[in-house]
């Protein structure tokens, strides 16, 4: 085989590899971008309790929002509730209780309360896992929880 042919194959291979790598990076980057919530959630700060029907309506309307999956009467959620209350409030967020949450599509993602989920245009994009060591720090430290929120929600 001629040297020039080998060179051409090499160049084409490198170009294709670069295109694929760039594509993969773009997809990865796009998948990890913070979510811009709908404007109404930036306008004022509030915690709104909702039930499964109201949640399903938000999903059907392709809304982008933050939601806390909580459960009343349980000592396990107190710390997250307290941390969320203590954080500088920047957006309005919803709260749904577990008996309602587990009858929605949240159940496909969030297996245990408490948790936070960021929904983008009606799809759950980010959420915290109570059964993951990787997420443990967000359950224990308000600063870490804030950094998670800052990285997942555009301000």
């Amino acid at each position: 085989m001629k040297k020039s042919t080998i060179l051409k194959i090499l160049v084409i291979t490198i170009v294709v590899a670069i295109i694929f790598a760039a594509g993969a990076l773009t997809i990865f980057w796009a998948n990890n971008l913070p979510v811009t919530l709908d404007q109404q959630y930036y306008d004022h700060v509030e915690i709104i309790d909702i039930n499964k029907d109201e949640y399903n309506e938000l999903i059907a309307d392709k809304k982008s929002f933050l939601i806390m999956i909580d459960n009343a009467g349980c000592t396990t959620t107190e710390k997250m509730r307290e941390m969320m209350r203590g954080l500088p409030q920047q957006v309005t967020y919803y709260r749904i209780f577990w008996p309602e949450a587990k009858e929605t599509n949240l159940k496909d993602y969030v297996k245990y309360f408490p948790s936070l989920a960021v929904v983008e245009k009606g799809t759950v994009k980010y959420y915290l896992r109570a059964d993951s060591d990787d997420d443990a720090k967000y359950y224990n430290n308000a600063a870490d929880l804030k950094s998670w929120l800052d990285s997942k929600i555009a301000h």
Binding site: T76, Y112, R129, A130, D131, S132, D133, D134, D135, A136, Y139, N140
Partner: peptide
């Protein structure tokens, strides 16, 4: 113990 916050409980 479980992983994460559940393990801490």
């Amino acid at each position: 113990l479980s992983e994460g916050q559940r393990g801490e409980l």
